[in-house]
């Protein structure tokens, strides 16, 4: 199997896996980065969202061979101490219920705020439409993104 040198959270990490292995399973099974979640495997729920060169990507549908030298950021690398404005806003707004989808929600929102620090409500909803929260915490997710955008 080929060896991939991946740039993840500012570090070079190596995985010896088949070329078609989705980045999600490389992160989870091979690199021990478990914050990125499996929800559907077909890019429909957003639980597996990571950043590739700052852009939100569904890692369940991204073959490791397509990553090449791109900079990958996972929830573990979003901030040093869990102090990204979104992470703080998520706690402040008390968003999580079961919590399983939240890393993906935060990563999708973080990519949005990076390219558009002060999005409109419609822009937030358009962006977050791809992330499912089965507990129905959407109100607080939306509120937390709006709160974070005032802190950037």
């Amino acid at each position: 199997m080929p060896v991939y040198n991946l740039q993840i959270n500012g570090k070079q990490l190596t995985a010896d896996v088949a070329a078609d292995t989705p980045l999600l399973w490389v992160l989870r099974d091979h690199l021990g980065l478990l914050g990125t979640k499996y929800g559907c495997g077909i890019a429909q729920c957003g639980a597996c969202t990571v950043h590739m060169n700052g852009v939100a990507m569904r890692s369940c549908s991204l073959p490791v061979s397509a990553v090449r030298t791109a900079a990958i950021t996972t929830i573990e690398g979003l901030s040093v101490d869990g102090d990204h404005p979104l992470q703080k806003a998520w706690d402040e707004t008390d968003v999580p219920q079961c919590g399983y989808c939240q890393a993906g929600q935060i990563m999708t929102a973080a990519a949005l705020l990076k390219r558009n620090p002060h999005p409109s409500l419609t822009e937030i909803e358009d962006t977050m439409q791809g992330n499912i929260c089965r507990c129905g915490a959407y109100h607080r997710i939306r509120e937390a993104i709006q709160l974070a955008s005032t802190k950037i």
Partner: peptide, 8 residues
């Protein structure tokens, strides 16, 4: 569990 959840 917030802190653990939002930091993955």
């Amino acid at each position: 569990a917030n802190k653990g959840i939002v930091t993955g």
